[in-house]
């Protein structure tokens, strides 16, 4: 097991006024547990505000988790000192959503890709230049890119630069936070294919965070669906998409617009908005929008448990058939 996340919690405190009641914290991630194996892709999906990005940032300790444990390569990430953390971060990297704003506009592309190598004292200047040239090749950029600046490149090319930078230290785990959401459709396919090819070639593991379930399904081995800071369903990608068990996953999949005129599924349109994560509903957090909610759902909180082999669902009314 490469990565084991247990009972991860991240609460963001809110400021309250001088005389008002203390404000409730925003429960961005509330008791999430998942694992990631070597050379596996785990997709983390959910709508905005469900805590998927926060979970990703907690793993890298870019955001300090409130509680829980994160084990990477059998080392407890939360117990590390800052020096040890810097050391272990060589093996885990992140790719961001906005390709242009995540690159320093004053640095050349060569400088951007070389920087992680300098920070971690890897190789002599000549070796580093060679490494950078090889990385450019790997992500499909011309060598002429070396001395140019990020603004001279299109969105898709900037994302390739971001990927090259993430690969520079030969990481084992890459956390990709909505890496293709800002790109045009035709470019999106290029980047997805590149990421799949790199994963095979370098035996990487991805935590692929996205709101787009069709993209996640394409790249992931397993998918975890989040709602209001909690994982509601986790299991193999194909099974989740073709035979979802949790009512939220079911509804989410049924409303994904598909570029074809042959729709078999009937749409289940969820009513209302996503509740505030500061005041999640009692019992099952989804009961306010759930089309099949019963009285019991308001009172009792479901736990994420295995309902089919390899598939866990957090719903009181999904029967166990293991």
């Amino acid at each position: 097991m490469l990565l084991t996340v247990k009972n991860l919690k991240k609460y963001f405190p809110q400021k309250s006024g001088l005389f008002s009641k203390p404000a409730l914290p925003i429960k961005a991630v509330d008791d999430c547990s998942f694992t990631l194996e070597k050379n596996e892709v785990l997709g983390l999906v959910g709508e905005s505000g469900c805590g998927k990005s926060t979970a990703g940032r907690c793993i890298l300790r870019l955001t300090e988790p409130t509680a829980g444990s994160i084990h990477f390569d059998n080392r407890d990430l939360l117990a590390l000192s800052s020096g040890e953390l810097k050391d272990i971060r060589k093996t885990m990297q992140i790719i961001f959503q906005d390709p242009l704003s995540s690159l320093n506009p004053r640095m050349t592309v060569g400088g951007i890709i070389e920087e992680p190598l300098i920070v971690h004292h890897r190789g002599s200047p000549i070796e580093r230049k060679e490494a950078v040239a090889a990385l450019l090749d790997k992500v499909g950029l011309p060598q002429s890119a070396l001395n140019r600046y990020p603004h001279e490149f299109s969105g898709g090319q900037c994302q390739r630069i971001g990927i090259a930078r993430a690969l520079a230290l030969k990481p084992q785990l890459i956390i990709a936070d909505e890496p293709v959401s800002a790109l045009d459709v035709s470019i999106q396919a290029q980047i997805i294919n590149l990421m799949i090819a790199l994963k095979e070639e370098l035996s990487l593991s991805y935590l692929f965070i996205s709101h787009d379930l069709s993209v996640v399904k394409h790249i992931s081995d397993r998918i975890a669906v989040m709602y209001l800071g909690k994982i509601v369903e986790i299991g193999p990608a194909q099974q989740i998409c073709l035979d979802p068990l949790h009512p939220y996953t079911k509804a989410l999949i049924s409303v994904i617009p598909e570029p074809s005129l042959h729709r078999s599924q009937k749409k289940t349109i969820l009513q209302g908005d996503i509740p505030s994560p500061a005041r999640p509903p009692s019992g099952c957090a989804f009961h306010t929008r759930c089309p099949v909610a019963k009285e019991e759902c308001k009172k009792r909180e479901p736990i994420l448990e295995e309902k089919r082999s390899g598939r866990s669902v957090s719903c009181l009314y999904v029967n166990k058939k293991v």
């Binding site: 035709s186 999106q188 396919a189 290029q190 997805i192 294919n193 993209v215 073709l242 570029p259 074809s260």
Partner: peptide, 24 residues
Amino acid sequence: LGLLESVPHISKEQEHLTVIPGTL
């Protein structure tokens, strides 16, 4: 044709996404 084939479908099995090479 390229656009239609470069989009991942949720209900369809796709080995590899077709790519429109290059940029605008």
